[in-house]
Lab assay of single mutants.
Amino acid sequence: MEVRTIKVFTTVDNINLHTQVVDMSMTYGQQFGPTYLDGADVTKIKPHNSHEGKTFYVLPNDDTLRVEAFEYYHTTDPSFLGRYMSALNHTKKWKYPQVNGLTSIKWADNNCYLATALLTLQQIELKFNPPALQDAYYRARAGEAANFCALILAYCNKTVGELGDVRETMSYLFQHANLDSCKRVLNVVCKTCGQQQTTLKGVEAVMYMGTLSYEQFKKGVQIPCTCGKQATKYLVQQESPFVMMSAPPAQYELKHGTFTCASEYTGNYQCGHYKHITSKETLYCIDGALLTKSSEYKGPITDVFYKENSYTTTIK
């Protein structure tokens, strides 16, 4: 009895394709271990004539594949690729409408935090270190965002349907971005203890939790000093293409032309909904596939993004 075979390709990165001759009487799992086709788990399936010449994702289970996976995804987590594939199996079914010149995501599976993050990423200057993220990001900007969303979920250790947080998501993504040249110098002034300067680099240099107003941050924000008295913390120097200011959701007025974009969060910790506000020729609110415009805006804002380049204080 002759062994019926077909020729397929296996890959971990969709760049390096490895030619395989597979036995049609055995499952993919018996031949390769966990195997995925377009995100779908085909591990328990036997090869079919229609699979001839198709590319299958496999887990990096030998040295060659491990090197290829690390170079593309910059992670050695053995569960990463499987999590990416199972997320992709959902995100490829989502709709990605162009809204006001940006790629958004039609609401499904509690994905409003991903839509808000995706919209924000198209408006701030950011370059990702893992080629996987950078490639998928370019495709997302062009309207094909399924891979990018699935990668975000995998890097953030999230599953489809789980509630997510924009600030946490951005923080994970910033860790995989090139923020080497970003720098922030802060000064804390206390009447009792004097003053202390701190220099922050990388992710810490672009994120701040405690106030939404970048102007206020430049002037000074009140913080408790270690001595128990009130101290003032203010920005001395900022070198970065953008800054992200966050605070627990509270009524906040966004003035046209003073910011790049913002995240609105309605609801409580267990259950809520994100919308995205962007400042173009007027203010726009993007909620999944829905767009509304207004000249002014007041609502429960939790993150505001500002364009920056270089700032030095005039406070002496």
Rank of each mutant, 00 (worst) to 15 (best):
S86I: 11
L121S: 04
A154Y: 00
T91F: 01
Q270R: 08
Q31H: 15
N111H: 02
K54P: 00
K255H: 12
L126P: 11
R66I: 13
G29K: 04
D135R: 11
K54H: 15
K127H: 10
Y234I: 10
F70E: 13
T91A: 06
E52V: 11
V12C: 07
F305V: 10
I15R: 14
R141M: 15
D303H: 01
E253S: 15
T35N: 00
G101C: 02
Q175W: 02
L235N: 06
P249A: 15
S279I: 00
T5L: 09
Y57P: 01
L186V: 10
T116R: 15
T314A: 14
T116A: 10
Y113Q: 03
Q175C: 08
Y252V: 07
A145M: 02
N309K: 15
A142M: 06
Q237T: 13
P241R: 05
T278Q: 10
V3I: 14
Q30L: 14
D77E: 05
S25M: 12
V206R: 02
A205F: 01
Y28K: 00
Y73T: 02
D303Y: 01
L133F: 01
C190I: 02
T120C: 13
F148G: 00
P131L: 01
G164F: 01
Y138R: 10
C261D: 03
K233W: 07
C271E: 15
L102W: 07
Y252W: 10
A289H: 14
E204Y: 05
E308A: 09
C149P: 01
Q216D: 13
A150M: 01
Q98D: 10
S86H: 12
A177P: 01
T232Q: 12
K46C: 11
L235A: 05
G272C: 07
T10M: 08
Q222M: 11
G101Y: 01
C193N: 04
T260V: 15
Q230F: 09
R184H: 04
T43Q: 15
G164H: 02
T169H: 00
C285S: 09
E168C: 02
G33R: 00
E2S: 14
P249G: 12
A205R: 04
S50L: 09
L114R: 01
L114V: 09
E253I: 13
G272W: 08
G164I: 03
H90R: 14
M85C: 07
Q122L: 08
K298S: 12
G257W: 01
V166R: 00
T292E: 15
T292F: 11
F80M: 00
T266W: 13
K183P: 06
T258H: 11
E144R: 10
T11D: 00
E68Y: 06
P241Y: 02
A145S: 02
C227W: 03
A132S: 06
G272Y: 08
N89I: 08
F259K: 00
V236T: 04
K229A: 14
N187H: 04
L173W: 00
L81Q: 03
S181R: 12
G220T: 04
F242N: 06
K7F: 14
G220Y: 02
Q175L: 02
K46W: 11
K95V: 15
W107V: 13
E215T: 13
M85S: 02
P224R: 12
T302A: 10
G143P: 02
N16C: 12
V22W: 02
D303I: 07
K293Y: 09
L65T: 15
D77P: 02
T103C: 02
A108K: 04
F148D: 01
V3N: 06
V185R: 07
A262T: 02
L121N: 06
P130M: 01
G101H: 04
R139M: 07
T260C: 14
A289K: 00
C261P: 08
W107H: 15
R83Y: 00
A140T: 05
L212G: 08
R4D: 11
A205K: 02
Q251S: 15
S171E: 11
M170Y: 03
L200V: 12
G53P: 00
A177K: 06
Y172D: 06
V189S: 04
L59N: 05
N187E: 11
S213Q: 04
C271P: 14
K46Y: 09
A177T: 15
L114S: 00
V166W: 05
Q197F: 07
D287W: 00
L88G: 01
F217W: 09
M207L: 12
C149T: 07
G194Y: 02
G220D: 06
K229E: 14
N16A: 07
V243G: 02
P130S: 08
F56K: 01
Y113H: 10
N61W: 10
D109L: 00
K233E: 07
V221P: 03
Q175F: 04
G101V: 00
T64L: 13
Q31D: 07
E52N: 11
V67P: 06
N178S: 09
L118R: 00
T313Y: 12
C271D: 15
P224I: 14
H256P: 08
Q98R: 10
M244I: 02
Y306D: 04
T159K: 12
K95S: 11
T312A: 14
T27V: 12
V236D: 08
A146C: 06
F128N: 02
L153V: 09
L290K: 08
S181D: 10
K219V: 06
G194P: 09
C190S: 04
F174M: 12
V67D: 15
H176V: 03
T103F: 11
K298D: 06
S213D: 14
W107Y: 15
E308Q: 11
P248F: 12
V206L: 06
V8G: 02
A247C: 11
Y311G: 08
N178D: 12
I15P: 00
E281L: 01
T75P: 01
Y297D: 05
M170L: 01
Q123E: 10
T169S: 03
N129V: 07
T103V: 00
Y113R: 05
S294F: 13
H273G: 05
R83L: 05
Q270D: 05
Y155D: 01
A117Y: 00
C227H: 04
C261G: 01
L290G: 11
I286C: 02
L17S: 07
N49D: 14
T292V: 10
A262Q: 00
Q123R: 00
Y137H: 03
Y252K: 07
K95L: 10
L114F: 01
C285G: 04
Y36C: 03
T35L: 08
P248W: 07
Q175G: 13
E68R: 10
D38H: 10
V67H: 12
Q196R: 12
C193D: 00
G220V: 03
E239H: 12
D41F: 01
R4E: 04
L151R: 01
T302E: 04
T314I: 11
G288V: 00
F148L: 09
G143K: 10
Q122V: 01
V236G: 06
G82K: 06
P224S: 10
E125S: 04
S279C: 09
V206W: 02
S246R: 04
Y72H: 10
N129D: 07
S86R: 11
N14P: 04
K44L: 05
S246C: 08
R184V: 10
F242E: 07
K54I: 09
C190F: 03
D62Y: 00
P300C: 11
D63F: 06
K183I: 11
P34L: 07
T120E: 05
C149R: 02
Y284E: 00
S310V: 14
K218N: 02
K280W: 06
T292D: 09
Q222N: 12
Y234A: 12
R141A: 09
T159N: 14
H90Q: 14
A132G: 14
L283S: 08
A69V: 14
K218I: 06
T312V: 14
K54V: 11
H256K: 12
A40I: 15
Y113F: 08
E296T: 14
L179R: 02
A154I: 02
R83D: 00
G164A: 07
Y96T: 03
H276C: 14
L153D: 01
A69S: 10
T10D: 02
N309A: 13
S25N: 10
T199E: 15
N61A: 12
T313S: 14
R83F: 03
D41I: 08
G39D: 06
Y297C: 07
L37W: 10
T75L: 01
T198A: 11
Y96L: 03
C271A: 15
V188L: 09
Y252E: 08
G299D: 03
K7H: 13
Y155H: 00
S294P: 08
Q216E: 04
Y72W: 08
E239G: 03
V304Q: 02
V185H: 09
D287K: 06
E239Y: 12
